[in-house]
Amino acid sequence: MTHTSIENNIAKLRLRLRQSVEKYDRQESDILLMAVSKTRPAADIREAYACGLDQFGESYLQEASKKIEELADLPLTWHFIGPLQSNKTRPIAEQFQWVHSVAREKVARRLDEQRPAGKPPLQVCLQVNISGEQSKSGVSLAGLPALAEFVESLPRLRLRGLMAIPAATDRETDQRAQFARLREAFSALQSQHPDMDTLSMGMSADMEAAIAEGSNLLRIGTAIFGPRRG
Rank of each mutant, 00 (worst) to 15 (best):
Ser187Arg: 11
Ala185Ser: 06
Arg176Ala: 15
Arg176Gly: 12
Pro194Lys: 07
Leu76Lys: 14
Asp73Arg: 04
Ser187Ala: 15
Thr173Arg: 12
Ala177Cys: 11
Gly118Leu: 14
Ile130Lys: 00
Trp98Val: 08
Gln192Asn: 14
Gly214Tyr: 05
Lys119Arg: 08
Gln114Ile: 13
Trp78Phe: 11
Val99Leu: 06
Gln114Trp: 10
Leu154Phe: 05
Asp112Tyr: 07
Phe186His: 14
Gln95Lys: 13
Leu159Tyr: 04
Asn87Glu: 01
Cys125Ala: 11
Pro166Asp: 07
Ser131Thr: 14
Ser200Tyr: 01
Ala148Cys: 05
Ala209Val: 04
Phe150Asn: 01
Val99Glu: 07
Ser204Leu: 02
Ala209Asn: 04
Gly143Thr: 00
Asp170Cys: 06
Gln85Asp: 12
Val107Thr: 03
Ala212Val: 00
Pro121Thr: 00
Gln134Ala: 11
Gly138Gln: 02
Gly143Asp: 05
Pro91Val: 00
Ala72Thr: 10
Ser101Pro: 15
Pro91Cys: 04
Ser191Leu: 10
Leu144Cys: 08
Phe150Ala: 01
Gln97His: 15
Arg183Lys: 13
Pro75Asp: 09
Ala205Leu: 03
Pro155Ala: 02
Glu113Cys: 08
Arg90Val: 14
Met201Cys: 03
Arg110Leu: 14
Ala177Asn: 12
Met203His: 13
Lys136Thr: 02
Ser86His: 08
Leu162Ser: 03
Gln178Ile: 06
Gln95Glu: 15
Pro194Ile: 04
Gly143Ala: 05
Gly161Ser: 13
Pro120His: 01
Ser204Thr: 03
Gly82Asn: 05
Phe186Ile: 05
Glu113Phe: 10
Leu122Pro: 01
Arg181Tyr: 03
Glu152Cys: 13
Gln95Gly: 06
Val128Ser: 04
Ser215Ala: 15
Ala167Tyr: 06
Ser140Glu: 09
Pro116Lys: 08
Leu141Trp: 03
Pro120Gly: 03
Ile92Tyr: 09
Leu182Asp: 01
Ala167Thr: 07
Gln175Arg: 03
Lys106Asp: 04
Ser200Thr: 00
Glu94Ile: 14
Ala117Met: 05
Ser215Trp: 15
Ser215Gln: 14
Leu147Lys: 12
Leu144Ser: 09
Ala188Lys: 11
Gln127Arg: 00
Met207Pro: 08
Ser101Asp: 03
Arg160His: 06
Gly202Trp: 10
Glu113Arg: 15
Ala210Asn: 10
Asn87Trp: 01
Gly82Leu: 12
Gln97Thr: 13
Ala210Thr: 07
Arg181Cys: 02
Arg181His: 07
Ile92Pro: 01
Arg110Glu: 14
Val151Met: 10
Gln127Ser: 00
Pro83Asn: 14
Leu154Met: 07
Pro91Arg: 05
Ala103Ser: 13
Glu94Asp: 13
Pro83Tyr: 08
Arg109Ile: 10
Gln134Pro: 02
Gly132Met: 08
Val102Cys: 08
Ala185Trp: 10
Thr173Val: 15
Ile165Arg: 00
Ala188Val: 13
Ala103Pro: 10
Val99Asn: 05
Gly132Pro: 05
Leu159Ile: 11
Ala164Thr: 10
Gln85Glu: 08
Ser86Gln: 09
Thr77Ala: 15
Ala205Phe: 06
Ser153Val: 04
Ala185Gly: 07
Glu113Leu: 14
Ser131Asp: 15
Arg104Leu: 04
Val139Cys: 09
Leu144Arg: 12
Ala117Phe: 01
Ala180Arg: 12
Arg181Thr: 09
Arg181Met: 12
Gln192Ala: 12
Asn87Asp: 12
Trp98Glu: 13
Ala148Asn: 03
Gln178Trp: 10
Leu122Asn: 02
